[in-house]
Amino acid sequence: MPMPAPRRNRFERRRAETRQALVRAARQVLAESGGASASIHAIAERADVGLGSFYNHFAGKPDLFDAAVADALEEYAQAVDERLHGVDDPAERVAGGVRLSARMAASYPEIMQILCHSQLGRIYAGDGLAPRAKRDVEQGMAAGRFTVADPVIALTLLNGGLLALLELWCNQPEADSDQAAGAMAETILHMLGLSPDEARDLAWRPLPAAA
């Protein structure tokens, strides 16, 4: 019979809570201004954490901001996974992921502002969207849904399309992001190897309802 995992002691819990408080504060700062002018002291104060405790968790502000972006993107990636739960076709998951990401400004405005104020390329950093995109591309290739021979090229197509959509929103927030996302998803699926008709069908298919 497997032994239950040991419960974290009080010190470990407090340490984790302190780190998460700093990450939350950094997310707020990044969303508001991009963080360039924020001092470590100001971030620690916002987190209600002593300045000395900051360096028990992070080497400096860039280290903290990297953790904050990764935390925000992991939260968003989990939400996309939940929304697309039950969708088995990797091609439909790719289309759904692109379209849901275009709605990030409305559903997750803090994360969208973080990306606009920092570097859009960070959307595929860390453990957030990157492994999910890789999973869908590899499964699509293994199932014969995608005919692109090189998975790196397939991921580049997907990443480039999503970055273009997010840049459009950052620079032109009044643009019709749903329309642009559907068109981008259709183009990506066709470039990955689906027929024009199937790419169009999947790209404009109603998204699964939110839970």
Rank of each mutant, 00 (worst) to 15 (best):
G35P: 00
S37P: 00
A38P: 01
S39A: 07
H41P: 00
I43F: 04
A44T: 08
A44V: 13
G50E: 14
L51Q: 14
L51C: 13
G52P: 13
S53I: 09
F54Q: 04
Y55W: 10
N56S: 13
F58A: 09
D63G: 11
L64A: 05
D66Y: 02
A67L: 07
A70W: 05
A70Y: 05
A72V: 02
Y76E: 12
Y76N: 03
Y76A: 14
Q78F: 12
R83D: 01
G86Y: 01
D88K: 05
D88P: 00
D89T: 02
E92H: 06
E92R: 14
R93K: 11
R93H: 03
V94L: 14
V94P: 00
A95P: 03
G97A: 09
V98R: 00
V98I: 15
R99K: 11
R103F: 03
A105H: 13
A105D: 09
A106Y: 11
S107E: 15
I111E: 06
Q113P: 02
L115I: 05
C116K: 03
I123V: 12
A125F: 05
G126K: 02
D127N: 15
G128V: 06
L129V: 07
R132T: 11
R135A: 13
D136K: 02
Q139F: 09
G140Q: 05
A143S: 15
G144F: 10
G144P: 12
V148H: 06
A149G: 11
D150K: 10
P151I: 05
L155Y: 07
L155K: 12
L155M: 15
L162G: 06
L163W: 02
L165N: 04
L168G: 01
A175W: 00
Q179Y: 10
A180W: 02
